[in-house]
Computed example of a mutant assay.
Amino acid sequence: MAKPLVVVIPHQLGRAEARRRLENGIGQAKEMLQKAGLSMADATWSGDRLSFLVAAMNQRVDGDIDVEDDAVRVEVRMPLLLSLFAHKIQQIVSQNGTKLLTKQ
């Protein structure tokens, strides 16, 4: 197992609004993953933590999204093979997370 990928996305929404946006964005994330040939097998909330499982290239990737008052912390744990794509994954998570958490 490779070192976890961690992305911290600052926001100014407050914890409740950030969580609401993430809850609403799960459907969009599943669609985006599906278009890329990936599938989100599981996404469950426990308090302000969303745990997820994604299947990619016969590999399983899991992680957690922790919602805080002023930031969202995304941690993705992936097999060594998929860690070769860590930089690209980090860019996608950061860009899409920032869009989702920008005040509108």
Results as ranks from 00 to 15, higher is better:
91 Q>I: 14
73 R>W: 11
65 I>S: 05
43 A>C: 13
63 G>V: 07
100 L>N: 10
16 A>K: 14
7 V>S: 14
36 A>K: 11
52 F>C: 02
33 L>C: 00
23 E>V: 13
98 T>Y: 12
1 M>P: 14
72 V>R: 02
72 V>D: 05
4 P>Q: 12
31 E>N: 04
81 L>V: 09
101 L>V: 04
63 G>F: 08
27 G>K: 09
75 E>I: 04
23 E>Y: 04
85 F>E: 01
55 A>M: 02
64 D>E: 11
22 L>I: 15
54 V>Y: 03
96 N>P: 01
99 K>R: 15
18 A>H: 13
20 R>D: 12
102 T>K: 09
36 A>D: 02
57 M>R: 13
68 E>S: 08
32 M>N: 01
27 G>S: 10
93 V>C: 10
29 A>P: 00
31 E>W: 04
1 M>Y: 15
25 G>V: 02
73 R>L: 03
49 R>E: 15
32 M>E: 10
75 E>R: 11
21 R>Y: 12
89 I>T: 13
25 G>R: 07
60 R>V: 04
10 P>R: 03
8 V>M: 06
25 G>F: 11
89 I>F: 03
37 G>N: 10
37 G>I: 10
99 K>C: 08
21 R>L: 09
3 K>G: 12
84 L>Y: 06
45 W>R: 05
84 L>S: 10
34 Q>C: 02
1 M>R: 07
60 R>N: 10
3 K>Q: 13
95 Q>K: 15
85 F>D: 02
75 E>F: 01
94 S>C: 06
74 V>F: 15
16 A>P: 15
104 Q>H: 08
53 L>Q: 00
35 K>A: 08
15 R>D: 00
63 G>H: 07
80 L>H: 06
81 L>Y: 01
19 R>P: 04
84 L>C: 08
54 V>P: 02
68 E>W: 03
99 K>S: 14
52 F>Y: 13
1 M>A: 15
82 L>D: 05
21 R>V: 05
75 E>K: 08
54 V>F: 00
41 A>Y: 02
9 I>Q: 07
14 G>A: 13
34 Q>D: 11
36 A>Y: 00
79 P>E: 09
84 L>W: 04
43 A>D: 09
56 A>G: 02
20 R>V: 11
16 A>T: 14
12 Q>L: 03
7 V>G: 03
87 H>R: 07
64 D>C: 07
93 V>S: 10
55 A>H: 06
29 A>H: 07
71 A>M: 01
76 V>Q: 00
97 G>L: 06
97 G>F: 08
13 L>A: 09
57 M>D: 05
7 V>P: 00
40 M>C: 15
69 D>A: 10
86 A>K: 11
83 S>F: 05
54 V>A: 02
57 M>H: 09
50 L>S: 11
51 S>I: 05
99 K>V: 11
25 G>M: 01
86 A>Q: 07
42 D>M: 15
29 A>E: 08
95 Q>Y: 12
11 H>T: 04
50 L>A: 03
48 D>A: 03
27 G>I: 03
100 L>K: 14
99 K>A: 13
4 P>W: 15
89 I>H: 01
67 V>K: 00
102 T>F: 04
